[in-house]
Simulated scan of single mutants.
Amino acid sequence: MSILEIFKAVLFGIVEGITEWLPISSTGHMILLDEFIKLKESKEFIEMFLVVIQLGAIMAVVILFWNKLFPFSFKEKVKVKTDIFVMWFKVLVAVIPGAIVGILFDDELNDLFYNYKVVSTALIVFGILFLIIENKNKNQKPQISTIAEITYKTAAIIGVFQLIAAIFPGTSRSGATILGALLIGVSRTVAAEFTFFLAVPTMFGASLLKIYKYGSAFTGSQIVILLIGMLVAFVVSLGVIKFLMSYIKSHDFKVFGWYRIILGSLVLLFFMLR
């Protein structure tokens, strides 16, 4: 395996680590990157690779939010944190719609909607929605300011928005869930946190599904490319998640809305003129 292929895997890991957590669509960026930087692997491997490197990004969430995710404490004696268990039940409620659709219709959805027209449209539409909702919420006090205040109904609504992202690539999983949360009165910080927590089972499940469908026929070079992509995505995600949580304490999501509109327009223009 050449140094160039390793460099490509690093670039994909960087892009994944940045775009998975910011509400700007990792799919849109990956499509553009894949146009300019082609891995010398089969189409089936690349499709699997672009999903499975998310496992690295997941581990960044687990590391950074361990105390909020792990429901047991071992100080002196074992203590069960019931509030964390309740949070996980709410995450499960939000995961179910997307999981059902993903398991049943993954290949069909890819064939129907994984194209530049859908991706660019989703980028632009959800970018506009970010601007509209942020303007609507301006000077309004959030109704939900902690994870504990998220009800099962709220979690289910956020899950429906994640389902939209599962169906239409370019929507952005984090973008859709954050947008849905903002729409129903969740604060920016809580919306981002719940989106991160929701990503753990969602992305882990999606990765396992892709690995299962791909099978076990990995070559040595493919394993190296996959591990490098995951490691880089993990390291980059650590910084990006910290940045986003700090940024939204004093800023809104409008800049990401404008970025999505510009990127969607560029994706559309690029493929129309190609």
Rank of each mutant, 00 (worst) to 15 (best):
I58A: 01
I58L: 03
I58D: 01
I58P: 05
A60C: 11
A60V: 07
A60G: 09
V61F: 01
V61S: 00
V62P: 05
V62R: 07
V62F: 06
V62L: 07
I63S: 09
I63R: 12
F65I: 09
F65W: 05
F65P: 06
W66N: 10
W66E: 07
W66C: 10
W66Y: 14
N67Q: 03
N67V: 01
N67C: 02
N67R: 08
K68E: 14
K68I: 14
K68S: 13
L69C: 03
L69Y: 02
L69Q: 02
L69E: 05
P71E: 07
F72C: 09
F72A: 08
F72R: 10
F72W: 10
F74E: 01
K75N: 13
E76H: 15
K77S: 06
K77M: 03
V78F: 15
V78S: 10
V78P: 07
K79E: 07
K79F: 01
K81F: 06
K81Y: 06
K81D: 04
K81Q: 11
T82G: 10
T82Q: 10
D83K: 13
D83C: 09
I84E: 01
F85Q: 07
F85R: 07
V86E: 13
V86P: 05
V86H: 13
V86S: 14
M87L: 08
M87A: 02
W88E: 01
W88F: 04
F89I: 12
F89N: 15
F89E: 12
K90R: 12
V91N: 00
L92P: 11
L92M: 13
L92V: 13
L92G: 13
V93T: 15
A94R: 09
V95A: 10
I96T: 03
I96V: 10
I96R: 02
P97N: 03
P97E: 04
G98A: 02
G98W: 01
A99K: 08
A99W: 11
A99P: 04
I100K: 04
V101Q: 05
V101T: 08
V101I: 15
G102Y: 10
G102H: 07
L104Q: 06
L104G: 04
L104Y: 06
F105S: 03
F105V: 07
D106H: 12
E108V: 14
E108Y: 14
L109G: 01
L109C: 04
L109W: 04
N110R: 15
D111Y: 15
L112Q: 04
L112T: 08
F113K: 07
F113P: 11
F113I: 12
F113Q: 08
Y114H: 11
N115L: 02
N115W: 04
Y116T: 13
Y116L: 12
K117W: 05
K117M: 05
K117V: 06
V118T: 11
V118F: 06
V119F: 00
V119M: 00
V119E: 01
